[in-house]
Write a protein that binds this DNA or RNA. Structure first.
Lengths: 133, 133
DNA sequence: CATCGACATCGATCAATGTCGATGTCCGTC
DNA sequence: GACGGACATCGACATTGATCGATGTCGATG
C-alpha cells in the first residue's frame, strides 16, 4: 500500500511497514499482511540458509552457482527459492554477464529485526519502553 | 535439553539455537531446522496478530476470550493457531479456572530478534552494513 | 552461426496447512 | 447432579507450497 511511513525511512520495498515493535501495540491486520510475506519467505530451511549464505558470502553477494553446492536440491528448486526471497523483497537480483548475483537488502533485514527488538538505530530507548505516545 | 549452547544461555526451549546472527556465518542446516518452526509459526497473519495482541495486552498475557473479538475466525481456528504458537515455543499456556491464559516467551522473542540484528559484540559484519558502518 | 553453460519457467505431483462445524472435556454455578 | 460457558480436539475440505524433470532463454565462446 502506498502510505508514507512516518519516521524511519529506510527505503522499504512495497509492503514494508517498518518500525513495528510487535509488543508496543497490536499490529494491525494491514501491517501483518505487509510483513507476513517476508516471514513466509524465511520460514523454510532452504530459504533461511540461502539468505544466510548470501549475507555471509564474500562481499555480501553470491551467484546461484555459489549456492548450489550447499544443497541436495535441484537447480530449479534453488532458483525457485531465490525467486521467493526476491519477490518478498529480501534479496536484490543483479545479472552480470552469464551469472546472476543475489544481494540481501539491509532495509528488509532491519525491518524484520525491528519486529522483535526494541528499535535498534532510530528512536532508541523510549520506543519499546513505556513510551506513551 | 540435551545439548549445551556455548555462551548466551537465554533458557531457550527445545530447538532454540540462540545467538545466530544470520549474517555472521552461514547458518547450519541443523540451526535452520531449529529456528524455522518459530518462523513458520509467525508467518501467518492471524498468528502474528495473536502474538502481538498477547505481547501488547495488559500484563503481557491474554485469555482466548480476550483475543476472539479481534478476528473473524471461528473459535476452533483461533484455538488451533494458539496451539501452533505454543508448540513452537513462542507462547506459554496457563490454565486459571475456566480460562486459559497465553503469555509470550521473552527468550523466544530474543532468539528471533537475534537472527536479524547484528550481534552486540564482535565484528560488525560488513556484509549487512552499508547501514550501521 | 553452432554450441555450451548459467539460470529461469513450466507442468505435474504429493504433502502440509488454514478453515470450518460438530463434538468432547473441564470448571463453576444453580 | 444438571446446566452453561470456555476452550480443545476431531474429521473433512480446499488451498497452498515444495519438489522434480523437461524445456526455454540468454550470454559467451569457438
Amino acid at each position: 500500500m502506498s502510505k508514507s511511513p512516518a519516521a524511519c525511512d529506510v527505503g522499504a520495498p512495497e509492503g514494508l511497514e517498518c518500525c513495528v515493535p510487535l509488543a508496543r501495540e497490536p499490529i494491525t491486520p494491514a501491517q501483518a499482511d505487509g510483513v507476513v510475506p517476508m516471514l513466509k519467505a524465511i520460514a523454510d530451511p532452504a530459504r533461511l540458509r540461502l539468505l544466510s549464505l548470501v549475507l555471509s558470502h564474500e562481499g555480501g553477494e553470491a551467484c546461484v552457482c555459489d549456492l548450489l553446492p550447499y544443497f541436495d536440491l535441484s537447480q530449479p528448486t534453488i532458483s525457485h527459492h531465490l525467486k521467493v526471497l526476491h519477490d518478498a523483497g529480501l534479496l536484490h537480483r543483479e545479472k552480470r554477464g552469464t551469472w546472476v548475483y543475489y544481494i540481501a537488502r539491509p532495509e528488509a533485514m532491519r525491518a524484520l529485526g525491528s519486529l522483535f527488538t526494541a528499535a535498534p538505530s532510530p528512536v532508541p530507548s523510549a520506543a519499546l519502553a513505556g513510551a506513551g505516545a
